[in-house]
Structures are given as C-alpha cells and as structure tokens.
Nucleic acid binder design. Structure first.
Lengths: 248, 248
DNA sequence: TCAAATTTGTTCGTATGTATC
DNA sequence: GGATACATACGAACAAATTTG
C-alpha cells in the first residue's frame, strides 16, 4: 500500500469514492499484487485522515466491483490484479495480441446496421458516398469483458461483415470471407474519458470508471482504407503498448 | 450538443459533476466548437431530467475551469475547445510535435534528485547498479499546463541533466549537453487513470479528472537505454496519435 | 421607444446523502 | 447506532440582462 494521497472535499466526488478510486488505481498499476492484504480499516482511516465509516464505504464499493474481498477477523484482500497489454503494431490483431496473456478471447456481435456514413467516417474510409455497415462488438478475455468497439466498413466492399463476424467473433475472419486476406493498421489515436452508461453496462464498470479510446484506420495491402473503428478499453484492465522495433 | 446520456444516482459522484464531465467531454471530443452556444439551462435540465440548479452547478464548475462562459440574458458559450495531438514516433520530441498546434511550449523543472534506482527503473535503463537522476517536469502549451512527467537517467552518464533541463526546458538540449546528440523512442505503454492530488494541482484539473500515462524508454543510436519516463497528459486536453508510415 | 419572450442570476424552503464524532 | 453539520438535489418563485418584434 502506497502512502495516502490527498483527498479533495466538496469536489462533487464523495470522499469514499476518491479513496476507492485510489485503491483500485494502486492495484491495477501493480503497486499491490493479487492476494495481498490491504491495511486494516483503522490504519487506512488514519492514513487518509477520514473516519473509519468512510473507509468502509470505499471498501464496500470495491467489494461489490469484485476488486476486493473482505473476510471477518482476517482482513481485506485483493481479489484480482494485473493489467492486460494490447500491443499495437502494423499487424495488430485482437486475439493474437492477447493470446500469450490469457487462455481464451471472444468477440460478440452486439448490434449491426446499414447506415449513411456519419461525418468523419466517409472521409476516413475514403468513400465518395454511400452506405456503411456499422457493427458494435464486445470483447472478452477469459470471460471478463475488456473492451467494446464500433467499427464501420464500406457496405459495397464487405456487405456481410456483420454476419461473418457474428459466426466467427473475428474481424480477420470476416474480412477474409470478403476476399481481403490481409490488412494493416494505418493510424491510431488514443484518448481517455469517463465511460458512458452503455459502456459501464457492457464492460461491467462502475460510474466514474475510465475508458481508453483507440480510434483506428485499417487499410488493405494497396493502402486503401477498409475499416474505421473506435475501441473502448476498460482502463483498469488494459493498457496499450507501442514498440518501435528499429529502435530496439 | 449530443443527447443526454444516463446519469447514475447514489454512485458517490455528484450528478452535477457527471453532467459537467459529459459536457466537457463533448467539447473536447469536437462535438461542440469554440464560441458555440450550449442549450439554455431549462432545456438541459429537461434533457438530463434534473433540476435547473443541478445544471447550474455543472456550468459553474466548468466556468471555474475556464471551459464555459455564461452571459446573463444571452446564454452560455464554449470558451475553449480543441484537443492537442501528441504524435508518437521514433523521434518524438515534445516541443516539435506541438509546434504546429500552439504558439509556444515550455518545460519547467519542478524537482530533481539523485536516488537509488527504484524497482523497474534500473532494468529499463539496463543498469547493473548505481544511482539515477530523477527529474519531475511540467509542460505548458500557450501557458496552459498539458502534461507533467517524471524521468530517470543513469547518473553516471548524464550527471547534469537537471541543471541543463532547468536552463533550457528541453530534454533534447539537456542530453546534447551530455554528448548525446540523438535518441530514439524504443517503446511506449499507454494507460489511463484518475489524476492524483499532485497532478490535479500541477495540471489544474478537478477531482475525477483523467490522465493518460505514457511510460516510455528512449535509447541512444547504439540502442542503449538512456531515459525512462512516465508522462501524465491531461486527457481532456491531449490525445496521442500513432502513425504507421509504411501502411499509409 | 415600448413590450414580450428568452435566458441567466438569486433567494427562499425542503428532503436526502455524506462524513464526523 | 445515534446526533450533528454540511453538501447535494429538488421545487417555486422573482430579478436582471439581452434579444426580438
């Protein structure tokens, strides 16, 4: 347990939630390991200079989230811990980048529809006009939701992408079915924000939780854009790594 | 103004803050442009299904942050807007990547000290043993703080890095002074979390705010690590872009 | 110039949540 | 657990500034 950082009163964020966020952050950043015992409530109360009831509220929230596990007479323990790393590269594939870290990954189709390309999407896909297929997906690692995404494709080029994704849980497979055997990551923009209500539900997060938003464009081997997507990662479970191989 | 997303009651995060966060997010994601007028309080109150006072609390918080500006009888307007983009590449340099987006950037030395390499740092710098120079810096763009960083260097190799940074506000300059004319970004890991108290102060953020954390290793032209750093970007002001040039 | 409509600013009161002791 | 203080959220007004007709 690291030292208690200052808490801010009257900020619109209850003290118990600020403390819960700090403890969760210490756990997911690796300062606290799985199975470790956190200090007793009285000690935490002293350290954060708050009442013990306030600490109990924080622990109760984290227990409900599944981050902590309290045992009467023994102490409070860390239930879960380490972050998964999503390695970004030209040939980034979701299941592949996680394959060494988890036993199993899965992709679930949440929704799909044909729509007029929203502003920004047509430009990103270098389309003159026309319709796009939009798919909303959820990705799990060992059964836990780790990210959800919205992706747009040129409807003329990959009309059955939703169906093919649904049956396989894989973008790579769905594109192969449309005759696109290979694709490359052209650009990625990474931002972070608070999770919205739908993301909270899908990723099983609590209000105030953070998502990393990766906005990406994938191109075929001719350099033509085929996929524009926004993936939201649960920031307490995932981090993104960028390796510059030539500088190794 | 996009549609109101759900707010969650009794979550430990005040409703006025959740609404303020949503409005701020809409602004910085570009859904709302500088100078634009946001809907009147009554309309927002209806849309979010809350009392007008609650909307006023949210607006007051954003006004204090400098994001909004209210004028009696006229309306409430967006004061500030666009996000800065930090382009990550092998030769990433802070001032250079922002030079096309802002008039002026500055680096300020907050603190420095000689210390035994903490766990993780010695490995990252490929040092057998010994001391490291740690510097804590703050970076501003056009006067606004956008990021703060902690960086470690092998004390044997760049003993005066703190002094040289202090006088120039530039890592590139400080390394040149130690005879390192060029360096490359080897790896970057990006995560996101809530800002800690010190970061809130330095970056002038409010509790619950988000920081993007970039953990980086820079190497010299021989591939030997010279700098290990953790940079925290205010997520509502900055995003990170990764371009894969060969896939363009 | 005046009047109406719109929009932000202010002041009551009341109920509930948060935090302390 | 109970008592107390303060923050949060709601509701109903009214006041002040601005825009529109």
């Amino acid at each position: 347990m690291t030292s208690a950082r200052t808490i801010t009163r009257n900020s619109g964020v209850a003290i118990w939630r600020q403390i819960a966020d700090q403890i969760r952050s210490d756990i997911s950043s690796g300062k606290l390991a799985t199975g470790a015992r956190i200090p007793p409530e009285i000690e935490l109360a002293t350290r954060f200079a708050v009442n013990r009831h306030t600490i109990r509220s924080a622990i109760a929230a984290l227990t409900k989230e599944g981050v902590l596990r309290a045992e009467q007479g023994r102490g409070t323990f860390i239930a879960n811990s380490k972050k998964l790393t999503y390695r970004l590269g030209e040939r980034t594939r979701f299941s592949q980048t996680l394959s060494t870290q988890v036993r199993e990954t899965r992709g679930i189709l949440l929704a799909h529809r044909l729509e007029e390309a929203p502003s920004g999407v047509a430009e990103a896909l270098a389309m003159q006009s026309g319709q796009v297929v939009r798919i909303d997906t959820l990705h799990t690692a060992d059964g836990s939701p780790v990210s959800c995404a919205t992706a747009w494709f040129d409807a003329a080029r990959v009309p059955n992408v939703a169906e093919d994704y649904s049956s396989s849980g894989s973008i790579t497979f769905a594109l192969k079915a449309a005759g696109i055997d290979d694709y490359l990551r052209k650009s990625t923009i990474i931002a972070a924000r608070h999770a919205e209500a739908e993301e909270l539900r899908h990723l099983r997060l609590s209000p105030g939780a953070i998502v990393l938003v990766a906005t990406a464009i994938n191109v075929d081997t001719m350099g033509h854009p085929i996929q524009y997507s926004k993936t939201r990662f649960a920031a307490d479970r995932m981090e993104i790594a960028i390796d510059n191989e030539s500088a190794g």
